[in-house]
Write a protein that binds this DNA or RNA. Structure first.
Lengths: 234, 234
DNA sequence: GGGCAGCGTCATAATTCTGTCTCAATTTAT
DNA sequence: ATAAATTGAGACAGAATTATGACGCTGCCC
């Protein structure tokens, strides 16, 4: 099973607080990768790059400091777009500005409560979604853009490539209505010469597979199809 | 001017610091909309919704507090995706967590330097995805030309394609009066052979859906229909 | 070659929208 | 004030649009 459990890289030199935070986050259903120094952090990045969704970095860690790690992440082919949170002692405003310029997304002053850190993490992950995460979620539906398939809660729904193309189009732009022509162009790749109404059939097949969530795809009569805006909750 | 300037909504009750920050940001090539209390903030949001790219909110402001404003923004058809930054006194961790859960994107403890605030703003704008929906606003009404529907404040109004065609025509040329023939040509596509009284019926249906704002569409007796010039504020 | 899955087309059923009609309400003209 | 003209509202039939089920075609894997 591959439900979108997020993996967080935590880099923090003080062992005790790091463990506490890691445990707390694991209880909240995240996977954790923990490093207590910069070298270890870089190793973890090397080995697990494609799994990491967010990084929490203490600025002051042995060997390679947080800023350096952030720079590595931002240049990394797979990781360059993940959210990065810096942790640091209070009142180091200079660090904070530098961090932001380096491309950090957020900044938390220590000491910070576990709940606070979690709130920051969730806020970032929530906004992260549409762009570059491999998962896009609406309601019960999770689209895996790298595996090219769709999950309804925890069960996988097999899609044909045309059906995947449809749902991907809708998920990428949840508030838009697409005309049949636009849809055809997206799923056909090239503008093949295909009857309009064929789209209806694919929509029907897709809805069938979506079961209870079939009303997530809405017919905008006279216009085309799109997601059901009333069911989209951010 | 090279780049399209970003417009920032700043809500902060203390006049002196607000001015300083506003000036500083204007020097950095942003447009500023400043409110010193919640009521004013809501007005600015009403009138300038489609121009605002980011909001900086103090939590404690008179009339309507920052959290409430954030909630309004998140429910607003045009603004729901902009970055929101909260400003607050240090160590109000509870506020901070609540703010993040409300969908704030960032949180800055006061006092904060001008440069720090700017760094946060730039960090958020940098990550903001380009918006591809086009909005036209008059009064409480927001027309979403990519989603093909109409919002009345924050509630969506479902329109048929004919009704959408009508309102689109009026919104594109708010000061014009259209004869029934012109209206028919616009919504019919081709000049179908249809009684011009049919327009009356569509107008009626549209007004019905518009509820309190039904008087936004005015009857120009003997001429046709158009937007109510008295209710258009430019 | 047979079986199968995916796609496109068609015919027909189901649904929603549009256009017309009638009558009431409102405004304008005499 | 009354009549004439214009617009608003409700109801309804049939037009237009969409949903569905069935079928043939293609390419792929045994």
């Amino acid at each position: 099973m591959t439900l979108p459990k997020h993996t967080i890289l935590l880099v923090e030199d003080e062992v005790e607080p790091a463990e506490m935070l890691a445990n707390f986050l694991e209880m909240s259903d995240y996977n954790l990768l923990v490093a207590h120094n910069g070298k270890k952090a870089l190793e973890l990045i090397e080995k697990n790059a494609s799994d990491i969704h967010l990084a929490v970095l203490d600025i002051m860690v042995p060997h390679v400091n947080g800023k350096e790690i952030c720079r590595v992440i931002r240049k990394h082919p797979v990781l360059s777009d993940i959210p990065v949170i810096f942790l640091t002692a209070k009142d180091k405003e200079k660090d904070e500005i530098e961090g932001l310029e380096l491309g950090a997304d957020d900044y938390i002053s220590k000491p910070a409560s576990l709940k606070l850190v979690k709130a920051h993490i969730e806020s970032l992950l929530r906004r992260q979604q549409p762009q570059n995460s491999k998962w896009i979620q609406y309601g019960n539906l999770y689209l895996d853009t790298s595996g090219k398939d769709l999950y309804q809660k925890e069960t996988r729904i097999e899609l044909t490539s045309t059906e995947y193309g449809l749902i991907e189009l809708f998920f990428q732009n949840p508030k838009r209505v697409y005309t049949r022509q636009e849809i055809l162009e997206h799923i056909g790749g090239d503008d093949r010469f295909v009857f309009d109404r064929t789209v209806d059939v694919h929509i029907k097949n897709l809805r069938l597979k979506m079961g209870d969530d079939s009303d997530m795809i809405k017919t905008y009569r006279g216009m085309g199809y799109g997601l059901n805006r009333d069911k989209i909750v951010l």
